[in-house]
């Protein structure tokens, strides 16, 4: 829905005030501005300050929760800033500090994990995030803009853009915010994405402060490109689960996934299963990793999603991604 600039400006002010007043609330994981839920459905024609809480309390329980210090206030009341009133929405499920509640298993970084640390030079497999969300995803690799030859980083839309209202030019941090990244850790600025072409992929132009080399943490350089084939053994290096292996079991898939609040069709999906039972292939935070053919280190896919029951990873066909973004992957022969 289009939002007029004046309303948006007021919303930013309200959001700032809401964050100042409530972000320290132990029950609040995220505050944003968006479409509220009304009676279980997304209200497409409304906008609200949204408090993402770890636990939503009914009225009687809320009083007890405030008394016990589990939360600080009733967040459902309209928020008034500068004489302007904003409705609010309290959304349960933001257990993980990320803009899309409901994803599984975010965990705080181990301080010794080298993928979670500030690195120079940069390489694929490291923690990154956009500037606004307490999250981390994975830096996929080095690409070059086919139009300008500018060096860029490749990752997912939901890692580099991460919001339907995001703008070109927003910053990318390494490490990601959930790994302690701050405004002093900017490595790139968002340039374009391919979500409109049904691909969860994006690129950001390097600022030049730190060099990005063709290297995947724990694996070495990417040595080429190839098409994912059924039965192919593949490997990736990701922020969350590190180096993991899998086997391609499906290609040319079409998925429908939820990028709250919207469902999106995603095309050119490669399906990757564990090589053996009980093996892990991926987890939340691995998004943006490059899947490589294990025997040749040639890139086949860009990781973007996964599931636990059964354990399985989804990637985007790398050729489709590169074509859509008009970039070339930097490889070593």
């Amino acid at each position: 829905m289009p939002v007029n600039p004046m309303t948006m400006a007021r919303a930013r002010l309200a959001l700032h005030e809401a964050a100042r007043a409530h972000l320290s609330d132990p029950n609040v994981g995220l505050i944003d501005f968006g479409l509220p839920e009304r009676e279980g459905r997304i209200a497409e024609n409304e906008l609200a300050i949204r408090f993402h809480v770890y636990q939503k309390y009914s009225s009687p329980a809320l009083e007890a929760a405030v008394e016990s210090g589990d939360t600080n206030a009733d967040l459902s009341q309209p928020f008034v800033v500068g004489g302007f009133r904003f409705e609010t929405d309290v959304i349960e499920g933001a257990y993980r500090p990320h803009q899309w509640p409901g994803w599984g298993g975010w965990r705080r970084p181990r301080q010794t994990d080298p993928r979670a640390m500030r690195r120079d030079p940069l390489s694929g497999g490291l923690s990154i995030s956009d500037q606004y969300h307490d999250a981390y995803g994975t830096l996929g690799g080095l690409v070059v803009d086919r139009a300008t030859d500018s060096p860029m980083i490749l990752s997912n839309w939901h890692v580099l853009v991460a919001d339907w209202r995001a703008r070109v030019g927003q910053s990318v941090y390494q490490p990601g915010r959930l790994d302690g990244g701050t405004g002093a850790d900017v490595i790139a600025t968002l340039t374009r994405d391919a979500m409109s072409l049904n691909l969860d992929a994006a690129v950001a132009t390097l600022t030049g402060d730190r060099q990005l080399i063709n290297d995947q943490v724990g694996l070495g350089p990417v040595r080429g490109l190839t098409e994912a084939g059924l039965g192919m053994e593949v490997v990736k290096s990701g922020r969350r689960t590190g180096v993991t292996y899998g086997r391609v079991t499906g290609v040319e898939g079409i998925a429908q996934l939820n990028y709250r609040p919207l469902d999106r069709i995603i095309r050119h999906v490669v399906t990757i299963d564990p090589r053996a039972n009980n093996e892990e292939v991926s987890g939340p935070g691995d998004s943006g990793s490059l899947w490589l053919e294990a025997s040749t280190m040639r890139a086949v896919g860009l990781h973007f999603a996964g599931g636990d029951t059964p354990e399985r990873a989804l990637a985007l066909d790398i050729e489709a991604v590169l074509t859509a973004l008009n970039v070339a992957l930097v490889i070593s022969e």
Binding site: L230, G231, T249, G250, V251, E252, G253, I254, A255, Q256, L257, I265, V269, T271, G307, L314
Partner: peptide, 25 residues
């Protein structure tokens, strides 16, 4: 198989239980 996948996606992808349709073994 590609054409059949597209037909199947058109028929089923909007169903709430369907997450992905692909070509595999």
């Amino acid at each position: 198989a590609q054409v059949a996948r597209d037909k199947l996606a058109k028929r089923l992808l909007d169903h709430p239980r369907v997450s992905l349709i692909d070509i595999g073994y």
